[in-house]
Every structure is written in structure tokens, then in C-alpha cells.
Write a protein that binds this DNA or RNA. Structure first.
Length: 605
DNA sequence: GACGGAATCC
DNA sequence: GGATTCCGTC
């Protein structure tokens, strides 16, 4: 019923490129699907419906026929087509909306990667897709006060179609990442939770969270189109409270969808997955700024998002990898190892979450790494196997931990196949992909008692230039984001924070070395050698940590299980910060500079 | 209906 | 690599 055009479902143009690329005669299925979704004439066959990015195939056989026609496969049928669609699950381009027949959901986040390969995600490490592992599955997280959602009155007609379409396009431009992958994950969560849990951090909040507090509905409306704009909902379109919607307020862009199109398709399709961090004011600036799905804006957004996510203690998985940018590796608190780890899930505790630990050897915790046993998405056969093999858990544990020592080759462990993944490690796309989403969700809860330890730069992405985004987040976001409810248009997470150009009105950050007015590049140079030393030291430390940690885990795990609820050595009290403010600041400087250089380099492409 | 393995095609 | 085809299973 709804199409991007008539509902404000403003997906970026690239998402609708018929053949993806001019010379490509081999249209991909997802492109074809989008194509159909975009066309009014096929609304009776396939249409957007439900959650953002979600669509329902109303006439499976017809869609299959059309697909077959396009591919010159007259024998095509829904069974085959659906098989192709299922292959997208692992690729995280698409996922199934459970419980709804013929209903799938796009994960545009992934598609962004596909269409923006220039955005170096770090050799295969894609967007932590959807599932930016939300610390507590969304139900425990609480926005910091003064989030846009609180600023915007529920009565304000943010759902105005006109506004949506236009605002959406604007905002959407700024929401490329999602981190979501969470999309999938959260999608699962959503269904599992049945919507109740979304009350506090529901889609509405999520979407509202994208609006800058300062941008009233009116201003947005005026600024971005107003009535009659793209996205005017066609008659009969779902509106607020539509029973068809799984949400109190349809997250769908355009018709009834609160800020629907506001979200970029690239952004997690699942509001719930964003909630934990979407509200970050860091995204707000994007609203008013000129952001579009062009490389530069995309990169800016990604960075902002990256940091934003980090600021919200999301799993490292939720991070993109940028060239020369390596996520920090929070060190576990050496001082308060027993500290309840749940605390770190709350924004207020953030200030101490991400430090430059790896630059401060003395502050480092013996091991920044944490490992989490994660059952792999068992195939039917595998499931059978594991099911029949009792005690698989323990045995797998053993083997898993054995694999731990390998770290980079956990998959090589023999059966029982239980994936051992360093919680802190940014998985490669493939790794993420093989992880069963639903299981991930379940694991998210586990994370609650755990700590998301940022990945270690073992991915081969320009290990030399370490840009500690986490530090930035901890350094700046913590200080600014939550302190300035009524931030100016450019908000707390300004370009400078993102390692971009410094805003004229915003003096460059003061660095320890009194580099206040020194250009980023110069500051960068000045810091370079110094940081190199620190990094070298830090990396050695980390390598050691990992090693020791892995060994330690292997040894301790059995004991820990035995002691059941004992106060055994927790794997992670981590989110402490080990770096002195001054050093964090210094590193932050470096990161900014690096980020900028990185952007500049890419911008030149 | 949905899933996913396996073989195969292009 | 991205389907397509077939098929067993749930």
C-alpha cells in the first residue's frame, strides 16, 4: 500500500536503482524487491507494511513470477524466490518478520555498505548491523534526561506526512548506520517482547530521539516540506494508533509513522534497536545540517553514529571500522572488579566507560578481553547433534576456550560447535552473519551482566593509526551530550567532535599540550610520535592481556561454573577507565585529527 | 510456511 | 558471488 513515494518512505535513491549499477544486467533480488515496492502498480502484490523497512508479499506467486520474468526464469516460484530471500538473512540484508506470513524486513544498514563500499568498514567487518547489541535489550536502558522525546510533545503532530517525507529525507540522510543490525536482532526482540517492552523505549522514542530538541515540529515542518510534501499518506494509510502497526505509533515513515522516513533506511529498521543510543543528541545535528546519502555525509554520519553508539556502551559489534580508526579497548577496572557490571549500561556511568586505556599501561587491567561463549547458529543437523550430545555445553566450553587461545580462529574448534567470541572483538561481517540473530538477542541479556569490551585492532585495519573513537565518546560525549539538553543546532556532537572541520564558533578542543588554536593536522603531527610510543606500548600490553586473559579464562571457567553463583572472578567489570583525563583528552585530539585525515583521504576518492 | 543444506548454474 | 533448484525437516 505504501511506497516510498507516496508514503514518505524516503529511501535513498541508491536503494531504488533498478539494476544497482548501470552496467549490471544482473539485478539482485533485493533490488528487484525494492523496485516493486516503489511502484504503485505492484502494491497489490508487494507493499511496505508494518515496521520500518518491513514489507509483505501479498501475492507470493506473482512476485515470484515477476522475478522469474526479470531473470528469465519462467520456472521461478515463491519457494525458490524465498530461498533466495533467505540467503539474505545471513547477509543481513533482509530478515524475516516472524509470525507474519510473507513478511520480511530490509536491513538497509547493510545495503548502505553495499552501496558505499568506499566507506571502509575494515576488511569485511561490516556494520555491526543490526544488532548493535543493545546492552540490555532495550528494556533497561533509559535515555538521559532531556532527550528529544521528552522535548517533543506527544501531541505535536510529528507524524504529519508532509513533514515526515521531507524531514525524513533530511534526517534519514543523517542516519546511515544503525548499527543495527540490531535490526535483525531487535526485530526478534520486538516480537519476543510483544511490544510491551517498547513502552519506555519504543519506536516513538527512538524516532523522536532523532529530532533535535531545538527543532520543533513546526520548524521542521516548515523547513522540510510541510503538507503536501513527499510522503503525504495516501488515503487509508495507517496513522497513529493503527491497529495494523505493532507500535503504539507506527514507526513507518510517512503515514502514521513517527518520523518514519526521518530515519534513513540505512538506520536500523528496528526502532527498538536504536533506542538505546539513537536518542543521542549526536544525531541531532544531522537533522538541520545538510546531510544526504552522499559519501561525505555518509561518512560523517557513520562517524557520528559510531561514536554515539559507543557512547551508549554498545557492543563493539555495533561499530563500523574506519580506515585508520580503531575502536578503543576499554580496560576493565582494576580498582573495582566487583563493581556491578550492569551499571555501565546507563548513560550516566559512561564517563568512565571508555578510556584510552591502551595508552596507559599502568592503568591497564590485566586483560581487556572478555570472552563470551556464543552458540553458533546451528543448522538443523548441528542442532540435532548438539541436542543429542548431552553436556555439550561443558564440553563445548572446553573446546571453545581452547579455541580461545587461537582467538582468530575460533571457528576451527571441533564439535561441539559453540562459537567463542571475544565479546570485545568486532566480528567480521561473516562472523556476525553466522550468528543467529535470535540467539544474539538472548545473549544480549547476558551482556547485561557483562561488559562490552571493545575490539582489539587485530583486524588489520591500519593498526598503526589508532583513532580511539571510544575515547572521543567518553571524552566529549559524556561531557557534552548529556549536559546540554538545549544544545544549539549543531548540537553537542559537532563536526569537531566527529573529527571533522571545526566549527567557526566552536573553538578547537583544548588539548593538554596547549594546542588550542593549532590546526588539527598540526596537532596531529605533534601528537603523533608521542602517541606512537604509547600505542606501541599499549598494544604490547594488550597482546599480553589477551594472552593472559585467554589462558586465565580457560583455567577459571571450570571453577567459576562450579562455584555457580559464587563471587568468582568476574570476567568483566570493565567499563572503568583507566586513563587520566589529560591523557584521554590528548588521545581524543589525536583521534579527531586522525578521523579528519581519514575523511579527507577518502573524500578525495 | 519457513528454514537451510547441497548441488548446480551463470 | 548470487542466485536457482531440489529437497528434507520442522
Amino acid at each position: 500500500m505504501k511506497t516510498p513515494g507516496d508514503t514518505g518512505f524516503a529511501f535513498p535513491d541508491w536503494a531504488y536503482k533498478p539494476e544497482s549499477s548501470p552496467g549490471s544486467r544482473q539485478i539482485q533480488l533485493w533490488c528487484f524487491i525494492l523496485e516493486l515496492l516503489r511502484k504503485e502498480e505492484y502494491h497489490e502484490v508487494i507493499a511496505w507494511q508494518g515496521d520500518y523497512g518491513e514489507f509483505v508479499i501479498k501475492d507470493p506467486e506473482e512476485v515470484a513470477r515477476l522475478w522469474g520474468a526479470r531473470k528469465c526464469k519462467p520456472q521461478m516460484n515463491y519457494d525458490k524466490l524465498s530461498r533466495a530471500l533467505r540467503y539474505y538473512y545471513n547477509k543481513r540484508i533482509l530478515h524475516k518478520t516472524k509470525g507474519k506470513r510473507f513478511t520480511y524486513k530490509f536491513n538497509f544498514n547493510k545495503l548502505v555498505l553495499v552501496n558505499y563500499p568506499f566507506i571502509d568498514m575494515g576488511s569485511g567487518r561490516g556494520v555491526p548491523q543490526s544488532a548493535p547489541p543493545v546492552p540490555t535489550g532495550g528494556s533497561h536502558f533509559r535515555f538521559p534526561p532531556s532527550t528529544p522525546s521528552e522535548v517533543l510533545s506527544p501531541n505535536e503532530d510529528l507524524r504529519s506526512p508532509g513533514m515526515f517525507s521531507s524531514v525524513a529525507r533530511r534526517m534519514g540522510r543523517g542516519s546511515v548506520s544503525d548499527c543495527s543490525d540490531g535490526t535483525s536482532t531487535n526485530s526478534e526482540l520486538e516480537e519476543g517482547v510483544g511490544g510491551e517492552d517498547r513502552g519506555g523505549v519504543g519506536p516513538e522514542r527512538a524516532f523522536r530521539g532523532l529530532l533535535h530538541p531545538r527543532l520543533s515540529h513546526d520548524s521542521l515542518f516548515r523547513a522540510y516540506g510541510g503538507p503536501g510534501g513527499l510522503g503525504r499518506p495516501p488515503p487509508g494509510h495507517r496513522v497513529h494508533g493503527d491497529p495494523m502497526s505493532p507500535f503504539p505509533v507506527s514507526p513507518l515513515p510517512g503515514p502514521g509513522g513517527l518520523l518514519g522516513s526521518t530515519l534513513s533506511p540505512a538506520l536500523s529498521m528496528t526502532p527498538g534497536s536504536h533506542l538505546p543510543y539513537t536518542p543521542s543528541p549526536s544525531l541531532s545535528p544531522m537533522l538541520g545540517s545538510h546531510f544526504s546519502f552522499n559519501p561525505d555525509d555518509m561518512k560523517r554520519y557513520l562517524q557520528a553514529h559510531h561514536q554515539s553508539v559507543y557512547n551508549y556502551h554498545l557492543s563493539p559489534r555495533a561499530f563500523f571500522h574506519y580506515p585508520n580508526i580503531v575502536v578503543p579497548q576499554p580496560h576493565r577496572p582494576s580498582a573495582a572488579p566487583d563493581k556491578p557490571i550492569t551499571a555501565h549500561h546507563h548513560a550516566p556511568s559512561m564517563p568512565h566507560s571508555h578510556s584510552l586505556h591502551h595508552h596507559q599501561g599502568e592503568e591497564q587491567h590485566p586483560s581487556p578481553f572478555k570472552f563470551k561463549l556464543q552458540p553458533p547458529p546451528l543448522g538443523r543437523k548441528q542442532r540435532d547433534c548438539s541436542a543429542s550430545s548431552t553436556g555439550g555445553s561443558s564440553s563445548s566450553l572446553g573446546s571453545s576456550y581452547a579455541a580461545l587461545g587461537l582467538l582468530s580462529n575460533s571457528s576451527s574448534v571441533g564439535p561441539p560447535k559453540i562459537k567463542v567470541e571475544p565479546v570485545s572483538d568486532i566480528e567480521s561481517d561473516e562472523e556476525v552473519e553466522v550468528t543467529d540473530i535470535s540467539e544474539e538477542d538472548e545473549l544480549l541479556d547476558d551482556y547485561e551482566g557483562d561488559v562490552f569490551t571493545p575490539p582489539h585492532p587485530t583486524n588489520g585495519t591500519a593498526p598503526t593509526a589508532i583513532t580511539n573513537l571510544g575515547a572521543i565518546a567518553a571524552d566529549d560525549l559524556d561531557e557534552d551530550v548529556f549536559k546540554t539538553p538545549a544544545a544549539p543546532p549543531m548540537g553537542p556532537l559537532t563536526p569537531s567532535l566527529l573529527g571533522l572541520k571545526s566549527e567557526p564558533g566552536q573553538g578547537p578542543p583544548i588539548s593538554p599540550g596547549g594546542t588550542l588554536c593549532i590546526p588539527l593536522k598540526l596537532r596531529f603531527k605533534r601528537r603523533w610520535s608521542e602517541d606512537q610510543k604509547m600505542e606501541a606500548y599499549g598494544e604490547r600490553e594488550e597482546a599480553e592481556d589477551k594472552k593472559v586473559r585467554a589462558e586465565k579464562e580457560v583455567v577459571e571457567e571450570p571453577a567459576r561454573r562450579e562455584s555457580e553463583n559464587g563471587e568468582g572472578p568476574r570476567r568483566s567489570p570493565s567499563m572503568s577507565l583507566g586513563a587520566p583525563p589529560a591523557q584521554r583528552r590528548a588521545s581524543s585530539e589525536l583521534q579527531r585529527a586522525t578521523a579528519q585525515l581519514s575523511l579527507e583521504n577518502h573524500g578525495a576518492c
